[in-house]
Simulated scan of single mutants.
Amino acid sequence: MTSTHQRRPARIAREVVLWTGAVLGTLSIILVLLAVVFDVKPLVFRSGSMEPAIGTGALAVAREIPADRVEVDDVVSVIADDGTRITHRVVAIGEEDGEVSLTLQGDANSAPDAEAYPVTTVDRVLVDVPYTGYALSALGSPSGMFACGLLVATALFLGFGRRPDDTGAAAQVRTLVILAGLAGLMVPAARPGDTLAQFTDDATMTSGNVQAHTVSSQAQPTCTDVNGVLVLGNLARLTWPQADARYEYLWQLRRSDNDNLVASGVVGTGAAAGSTVTLDISTGLIGVNTNYDVVVRARLSNNTSWVASTATTTPVRRASVVIIGTAFRCGHT
């Protein structure tokens, strides 16, 4: 017969698993209730641009408000033109084309962001909890999801297995614990994909350790007109030095008159520091003779969420050349 002393370690292990599921489930229920009842969203801070007020790895809770309710010194999250989420402090409020225009600056940055953000609504940060964002990000990863699934499966096995020392009340508590664990599993799957706060002073994560690193903007590209044969294949060639071997460059070709995106791509991946990065803008990209802007932004090639705070803009144009050909050329008409 198994003694009480022999059963104690197994019982302790069972309770640890079950109550771990309960804690995760409770946290998940709190997050879901906050999101539904108070219309808030979580933001995981992946850089140190708001330190010391909000550190890397913090989890913030933000709520959407109209832009006319924003005040100087608020910490707000906005979406930049290239889709990057920026979460910084408001240092000035203006008006641009009838819309509120915000000038933002990270507490750890020496200067405001390069461009103001015209907005109609923003996500204002209400509260933040240090380091909690790491846990939320981990739960949202494939390995985190697997661990949650394993925990719930173990809790189901342990919870519904009958034990000689169980009472009716204990069985009911166990059932609630398991349901909470199941809710905990749903958190990373339900977490909005656009709530990861991306900052202008980004950081790389290596083996679980955070190493401060600011992604530097590349130098302003040099634009050169390159001639083809008999004006066929004429193009505008942009070149700049590779800032860091870890970087690559996201480029976008946008119409100057309406800022519509017409082409995009990535160059410079794997190039050695100091080498020349080349981007050719040719007539195969777009067929309308007009002015365009080439917007280039540096980012880490192994984690494309980490981007430079500013982008470079180079004017180019597409124009017919005599009768037999077309060309891209540097500059606007």
Rank of each mutant, 00 (worst) to 15 (best):
V90G: 06
S49R: 07
T310S: 13
A111V: 15
L43R: 10
T239C: 02
R191Q: 12
F160P: 01
A62M: 10
S217M: 12
T103Y: 03
I79T: 12
G144T: 06
T56D: 07
Y292A: 00
C148L: 15
R14K: 09
A183Q: 07
I12P: 03
V61A: 13
R254V: 08
V100N: 05
S207L: 15
F199I: 14
V91R: 12
G270N: 09
M205D: 09
L139K: 02
N227F: 14
S47F: 00
N258R: 11
P118C: 03
R8Q: 08
I79Y: 13
V294A: 01
S305E: 12
V36S: 13
G331M: 07
L33A: 15
V322Y: 14
D39R: 14
L27N: 13
A153K: 06
L24D: 00
T326Y: 11
L230I: 04
G25I: 08
A219Y: 06
T200R: 11
E64M: 13
P192V: 05
N302L: 13
K41F: 09
L238I: 05
G106F: 00
L126Y: 01
A53I: 11
A311W: 02
C223L: 03
M1D: 09
D166Q: 05
L230D: 14
V23S: 07
L156A: 12
L151M: 10
G181Q: 05
F45Y: 05
T56C: 01
V295E: 05
S101L: 06
T154I: 10
V23Y: 10
R85H: 08
V17D: 02
G83A: 04
V44H: 08
P315V: 00
L156Q: 08
L126F: 10
I281L: 07
R246V: 12
T120M: 10
V90N: 03
P241R: 01
G48Q: 00
T283P: 02
L300H: 04
I54C: 01
E99H: 13
Y131V: 15
V187M: 15
N109H: 06
L34D: 09
L150T: 02
H213A: 07
V78W: 06
L179V: 09
T313E: 04
W240E: 00
L182F: 11
G284I: 02
A35H: 13
I281S: 00
T224S: 10
C330D: 02
V17K: 06
L196M: 14
G57D: 05
L179K: 04
G98T: 03
R191L: 15
R63D: 01
S47G: 14
A116I: 10
T175H: 12
S101D: 12
V187A: 13
V32H: 14
G208Q: 08
L158A: 01
A108V: 05
A22N: 06
D194W: 08
H88L: 05
N303D: 15
G331I: 03
L34I: 10
V215F: 06
M186I: 13
G331N: 07
V100F: 04
T278D: 09
D107V: 02
M205G: 11
G287M: 01
H88K: 03
R254D: 02
A180F: 04
R11I: 07
T269L: 08
N227C: 09
P118H: 04
R162G: 12
